[in-house]
Design a protein around this nucleic acid. Structure first.
Length: 318
DNA sequence: AAAATGTACAACCGCTGTAAC
DNA sequence: AGTTACAGCGGTTGTACATTT
């Protein structure tokens, strides 16, 4: 724990105006905010700052609470499962840290961002010669050459040459946060459970999500329990491999996407079609040229659907 | 032992989107 | 329609601590 810093010279009272504090939070400030939040709950942050007796702006209080004081934060080192998930998600989402964080319970976007920038990025750089699962899709080390990674294959592509399920993919993005892989597309069998044996035991009866009844769960004996219960029904679970234009031309029915991907039982069961999971059932949605609008329909819809994947790290105890 | 350098991470800044007025 | 306040996000900076020279 770092020592709190003393007030900078401009932090005192000035002409009856209370100057707002900046910089590191002192334990006293933390305690004030924590007490206030626990007894009053969340509200308007500027009010919270005022009512809690903090000489901080609401924004600062919000950040402190979200990134540090929140009781549900995990903190501590990232476990390998988390690392791999971050890498996976980053390969899909790019620098959308909040969305990545949403899939890692107890972790904040700031924490993940820092971890990525300080550790993972560097590590991936150094492991490009011997890539592993944890070295995929390094946005800073993408080679111009096609390469295999063991899990997926990254191809340099012409942005107009890739068609995914009838939806073309372009690397151009109008989003302020551009995807990190210009001119690259990962043709990869997306594996939402990188540390789960690929031969998930998806057979047998549905087991209720363990989080409904217990905090215990996890991966063991070939089973994975997420909040989806069991993913898939009768065979190995695998999401469809992304296809090139040519491949799709030969498979206009997209039959590989029609596999039932999951079943969830919250009193009643329902099936989730893989194509629906990815928002791909809507044929007029295209990733093509300007129409790849990450941050607009395609990406948001995609991520909405990806968000329906289990929070499987809930079940890891790192 | 001291200075220089590197690392990790907390916090700030600027921007965008949204709601209320 | 314009303005304001606020929440949220991602990029960046600042700083304490660790390691190396």
């Amino acid at each position: 724990m770092r020592k709190p810093v003393a007030d900078p010279p401009n932090m005192g009272k000035d002409n009856n105006k209370v100057k707002l504090r900046k910089g590191l939070w002192s334990p006293e400030e933390d305690e004030k905010l924590m007490k206030y939040m626990l007894s009053n709950g969340q509200g308007c942050w500027s009010d919270i700052a005022r009512n809690a007796g903090l000489r901080r702006c609401g924004k600062s209080c919000r950040l402190r609470w979200i990134n540090y004081l929140r009781p549900d934060l995990k903190r501590g080192a990232f476990c390998p499962q988390e690392e791999d998930l971050i890498i996976h998600l980053h390969s899909i989402l790019g620098n959308r840290w909040s969305q990545i964080a949403a899939r890692l319970p107890g972790r904040t976007d700031n924490e993940i961002k820092n971890f990525w920038n300080s550790t993972l990025k560097k590590r991936l750089k150094t492991t490009t010669t011997t890539p592993t699962c944890s070295s995929l899709n390094n946005s800073d080390s993408i080679s111009e050459q096609p390469r295999t990674d063991g899990v997926g294959v990254i191809f340099p592509v012409n942005e107009h040459d890739i068609d995914i399920m009838g939806a073309s993919l372009s690397s151009s993005s109008s989003s302020p946060t551009s995807m990190p892989y210009p001119s690259m597309v990962t043709l990869n069998q997306f594996d939402p459970f990188p540390h789960v044996n690929n031969s998930y035991d998806m057979k047998g009866s549905f087991n209720p999500p363990t989080w409904l009844t217990t905090t215990q769960g996890g991966v063991g004996e070939g089973l994975f329990y997420g909040d989806y219960g069991k993913i898939g029904l009768e065979g190995e679970f695998s999401l469809p491999q992304l296809e090139t234009t040519a491949a799709i031309a030969n498979n206009n029915n997209n039959s590989c996407f029609n596999n039932t991907a999951g079943e969830k039982n919250h009193g009643q069961s329902f099936k989730v079609e893989v194509d629906n999971m990815f928002g791909l059932e809507n044929n007029h949605h295209h990733w093509h040229g300007e129409s790849l609008r990450m941050g607009e329909w395609d990406f948001e819809e995609l991520m909405d659907n990806i968000s329906s994947f289990p929070n499987f790290l809930d079940n890891f105890h790192c």
